[in-house]
Amino acid sequence: MAQNDRTAFVMRDRSWHPRPYAPAYKTSVARSPQQALVSLQTPTASELTGPDFDHFALGLYDNDLLLNFRPGTEQDGLPIGERLIVYGRVVDQYNKPVAGTLVEIWQANAGGRYRHKKDAYRAPLDPNFGGVGRTITDADGWYRFRTIKPGPYPWPNDVNSWRPAHIHVSVMGPSISTRLVTQLYFEGDPLIPLCPIVHTLDDPDAVDTLTARLDMAAARPMDCLAYRFDIVTRGALQTYFENQS
């Protein structure tokens, strides 16, 4: 769904997004710019276009984390943990569906361990769980994954910091202006209000929009629960009559 350069996007509200410099999240201290961002008064084709993944060939199990680490071994190769459907809709700020866009996720296993060379947490890896998924939204903006619920994990920030259970979510949207990487949290997790990464957001309503809701209507009885997580990308508007003399 790439756009041509006649499309502009609603300005990003950077007071709603997290603060870049958030000293309670210690890594942000040395990794946040001190200078003001430079606003491009006139976005160009460079900002208003982006890759369209509608024709990117995905694998059969790319959105099924229960099967995609060992596809074809369903009988004896399932991951341990709470089986979940995580689904939702990608819309823009005008509630228009964002169709054909790439949604990617990654996460720890049920014990909070990532399958990454650099994760040395003592909770074990799950031999049947990789933790990566991707899909492309359908014509109405819907996406869907099947996975297990990730566990919380400790991290070296304060002496006793633990991340809430979360799934990292990446969305392209129609241009690089709408590019977004965020994290999905789970309704009712008492670690959410304790987390300094969550608290890079000033507005509790912003945290609320990152909190996926238990969705019993979408659960599969005797199989898996479901959580719903809708994603809103910047609103696309057409520019008319620009530069007419």
């Binding site: 997290p18 990654w106 720890a108 990454h116 965020t182 994290q183 929009t209």
Partner: peptide
């Protein structure tokens, strides 16, 4: 509707 807020991509 407000845009979904960003969060860090994290170490992994």
């Amino acid at each position: 509707y407000p845009e979904t807020p960003s969060q860090t991509a994290g170490p992994f």
